[in-house]
Deep mutational scan, measured.
Amino acid sequence: VLKALERTRQLDIPDEKTMPVLMKLLEEAGGNWSYIKLDNYTALVDAIYSVED
């Protein structure tokens, strides 16, 4: 979780936006981090930006 938060902080995305999206992605992935961690957490960042749209 810390590495995911560090990555999104680099992009000026607050933890308050990151955590709900991260928890949803983890739930959808059955707790499997490998998809979320791919390409420096690209799936997480993309999911956060899609929620903002």
Score class of each variant (00 low, 15 high):
33 W>K: 00
18 T>R: 01
3 K>G: 10
14 P>F: 04
44 L>H: 01
24 K>P: 01
44 L>E: 00
2 L>W: 12
5 L>Q: 05
47 A>F: 04
18 T>C: 06
20 P>S: 12
10 Q>V: 06
50 S>T: 11
3 K>S: 13
4 A>Y: 04
22 L>A: 01
26 L>V: 04
28 E>N: 10
31 G>L: 06
7 R>P: 06
45 V>G: 01
7 R>M: 08
17 K>F: 08
29 A>F: 15
44 L>Y: 02
47 A>Y: 06
46 D>I: 11
23 M>N: 09
35 Y>M: 15
42 T>F: 13
9 R>Q: 08
35 Y>V: 13
39 D>I: 02
20 P>Q: 09
18 T>K: 02
35 Y>F: 09
7 R>Y: 15
43 A>P: 13
42 T>V: 11
7 R>N: 07
19 M>T: 05
36 I>S: 01
32 N>W: 04
43 A>T: 10
27 E>Q: 13
21 V>L: 05
36 I>E: 02
46 D>W: 09
32 N>V: 09
5 L>Y: 00
50 S>A: 14
41 Y>D: 01
14 P>I: 05
43 A>M: 15
23 M>P: 00
22 L>E: 00
43 A>F: 10
18 T>S: 13
27 E>G: 08
24 K>W: 08
4 A>I: 05
27 E>P: 00
22 L>I: 06
28 E>T: 08
33 W>Q: 00
28 E>K: 09
34 S>G: 12
10 Q>I: 06
17 K>R: 12
47 A>S: 07
51 V>Q: 12
37 K>C: 15
3 K>C: 12
39 D>F: 08
32 N>C: 11
51 V>N: 12
9 R>S: 05
34 S>I: 09
52 E>Y: 15
17 K>P: 02
19 M>S: 02
50 S>Q: 14
8 T>L: 09
5 L>V: 03
11 L>S: 05
49 Y>V: 09
53 D>A: 13
18 T>V: 15
25 L>A: 02
19 M>Y: 10
51 V>K: 13
53 D>W: 13
6 E>D: 08
11 L>H: 07
33 W>R: 00
31 G>P: 02
32 N>E: 10
14 P>K: 06
46 D>M: 15
50 S>W: 08
7 R>I: 14
37 K>R: 13
21 V>D: 00
16 E>C: 14
15 D>Q: 01
11 L>M: 08
53 D>K: 12
23 M>T: 09
41 Y>T: 00
23 M>V: 09
29 A>H: 15
12 D>R: 12
48 I>S: 01
42 T>Q: 15
40 N>I: 04
3 K>L: 13
1 V>Y: 11
24 K>R: 14
1 V>C: 12
35 Y>R: 11
39 D>L: 07
49 Y>N: 13
3 K>D: 15
14 P>R: 06
28 E>D: 12
9 R>L: 05
29 A>P: 02
27 E>L: 10
43 A>L: 14
8 T>M: 13
10 Q>L: 13
31 G>K: 05
53 D>C: 14
30 G>L: 09
40 N>H: 07
18 T>G: 05
2 L>I: 13
51 V>H: 13
25 L>Q: 02
21 V>M: 07
1 V>N: 02
47 A>V: 04
6 E>A: 10
44 L>T: 00
39 D>Q: 09
30 G>H: 14
22 L>H: 00
18 T>W: 03
52 E>T: 14
23 M>L: 14
29 A>V: 13
19 M>C: 12
27 E>N: 10
52 E>R: 11
53 D>Y: 14
48 I>E: 03
23 M>W: 10
23 M>A: 08
5 L>C: 09
11 L>C: 09
16 E>L: 06
3 K>N: 10
19 M>G: 03
44 L>R: 00
26 L>C: 03
12 D>W: 09
11 L>V: 02
21 V>H: 06
42 T>L: 14
37 K>P: 07
12 D>K: 15
14 P>D: 08
12 D>E: 11
6 E>M: 09
23 M>S: 07
39 D>G: 11
46 D>K: 14
19 M>D: 01
32 N>Q: 08
5 L>K: 03
11 L>D: 05
22 L>M: 04
15 D>V: 04
28 E>S: 11
38 L>P: 07
24 K>V: 07
25 L>F: 05
45 V>Q: 01
6 E>N: 08
42 T>R: 15
40 N>C: 07
40 N>G: 07
53 D>G: 14
1 V>P: 03
40 N>R: 06
29 A>I: 08
10 Q>M: 11
26 L>M: 05
5 L>D: 03
17 K>T: 10
1 V>I: 15
48 I>R: 02
25 L>N: 01
21 V>N: 02
36 I>A: 01
48 I>A: 02
51 V>R: 12
1 V>D: 04
31 G>F: 10
32 N>H: 07
32 N>F: 06
29 A>E: 08
35 Y>L: 13
25 L>G: 01
53 D>I: 12
22 L>V: 03
4 A>L: 04
27 E>T: 10
20 P>T: 10
15 D>H: 03
51 V>M: 14
43 A>E: 04
5 L>G: 03
10 Q>A: 14
4 A>C: 09
39 D>T: 05
24 K>D: 05
2 L>P: 07
7 R>C: 10
1 V>S: 03
20 P>M: 13
2 L>V: 11
37 K>E: 15
51 V>D: 12
18 T>P: 01
29 A>L: 11
39 D>A: 09
4 A>T: 03
15 D>Y: 04
22 L>N: 00
28 E>F: 07
33 W>L: 03
16 E>A: 09
29 A>D: 06
16 E>R: 05
37 K>H: 11
26 L>N: 00
33 W>C: 02
31 G>Y: 12
4 A>M: 02
6 E>F: 07
3 K>T: 08
11 L>W: 06
28 E>R: 10
37 K>V: 15
20 P>V: 12
6 E>Q: 09
37 K>Y: 13
20 P>H: 11
14 P>N: 03
40 N>P: 00
51 V>L: 15
28 E>A: 13
17 K>W: 09
12 D>C: 15
5 L>E: 04
9 R>M: 04
38 L>W: 11
39 D>C: 08
48 I>K: 00
24 K>C: 08
11 L>T: 04
41 Y>L: 04
10 Q>S: 12
34 S>W: 12
17 K>M: 11
43 A>C: 07
17 K>H: 08
18 T>I: 06
25 L>S: 01
32 N>S: 11
14 P>W: 06
5 L>N: 01
33 W>Y: 03
49 Y>D: 07
36 I>V: 08
45 V>R: 04
23 M>Q: 09
41 Y>C: 03
33 W>P: 01
45 V>P: 00
51 V>T: 14
53 D>N: 14
17 K>A: 10
34 S>V: 10
32 N>L: 06
23 M>H: 07
49 Y>M: 14
38 L>D: 11
40 N>T: 02
6 E>T: 08
37 K>N: 09
32 N>M: 06
42 T>P: 00
13 I>K: 01
17 K>L: 11
52 E>A: 13
23 M>I: 12
26 L>I: 09
20 P>A: 08
47 A>E: 06
42 T>I: 13
44 L>K: 01
1 V>K: 04
13 I>N: 02
38 L>N: 14
7 R>G: 02
2 L>K: 12
13 I>R: 02
39 D>H: 11
34 S>C: 11
13 I>Q: 01
53 D>V: 14
29 A>W: 15
14 P>E: 07
5 L>W: 02
40 N>F: 05
29 A>C: 14
48 I>L: 10
33 W>G: 01
42 T>C: 08
13 I>G: 02
49 Y>P: 03
13 I>C: 05
